[in-house]
Design a protein around this nucleic acid. Structure first.
Lengths: 130, 130
DNA sequence: GTTGACCTTCACGTATGGGGCAATGTCTAG
DNA sequence: CTAGACATTGCCCCATACGTGAAGGTCAAC
């Protein structure tokens, strides 16, 4: 399978696949003329990478899961913290996201506090609730 | 007043002040030897710029307020939408922040949903409330 | 032999607010 | 006269996951 086919089968792009390889998340053989060649496992692997990215992990995070990316991930994730590093990475990522959300929320609230006429109905209802 | 003094008086850095000038938010005269020279208004202006940035506006946003930056801003902001462009910029910025917060929250929730053992007490209480 | 679809590497652009160098010029005090 | 504190411009760096060309090689079909 060449890179175009793999991209089509996984709903990604050739650019993304080369990027994953550059990041050490994907391996490929080469034809005599230098084209990347992929085995059938590559499809599962790419799906897993994209699945994790879409779940809020970063590329760096996904590197921690690289050992498990050739089997179906739902299996891995279904049974509690399957691997301790997965747990740690997940927990750290959740904390990072929570922190970023908090920081942006702080900015948002400062802004609304200074310019109260900017409050959205959503803000108003949250204010009522508080 | 030279750049170092202005930086010290406003709690910023020389690098930041040159950046503000590059962005058109600050003006300076020059000595014969090329040093930047600032008048006393510069201090108010820089404070206002940094105040707006700290309030969640971007550099681009602050450019919209450039006409008002030589007077004390609290005055400007105290009387409802003092200037219609201020209102528009503020509203847009609030919307942008809200959107970013929503996007990050979506990621966060997906992650917690997939790895429920990662939920923080905060998540749990929010879940109860819902 | 040529068109066209496929592939390659290289490398800049995205948004944000500066940080941190380098290489060099200027001013002031001892 | 020289040290050192200050100034200048300019350029690369940060994180993020690729997008979007450029300039060119490869392969199948007609």
């Amino acid at each position: 399978m060449l890179i175009g086919e793999l991209a089509a089968r996984t709903g990604s792009t050739t650019r993304a696949l080369r990027y994953y390889e550059e990041q050490g998340l994907l391996e490929s053989g080469r034809t005599a003329s230098g084209y990347r060649v992929y085995g059938p496992n590559a499809e599962t692997r790419v799906r897993n990478v994209r699945d994790l990215l879409a779940s809020g992990f970063t590329i760096e995070n996904v590197k921690s899961f690289v050992r498990y990316l050739d089997t179906d991930l739902p299996e891995v994730f279904a049974y509690s913290p399957a691997c301790s590093d997965g747990y740690l990475v997940g927990a750290q990522r959740v904390a990072e996201l929570a922190e970023k959300i908090a920081a942006l929320t702080r900015l948002h609230d400062i802004l609304v506090h200074r310019m109260p006429w900017l409050a959205t109905p959503d803000d108003a209802s949250r204010k009522e609730a508080a």
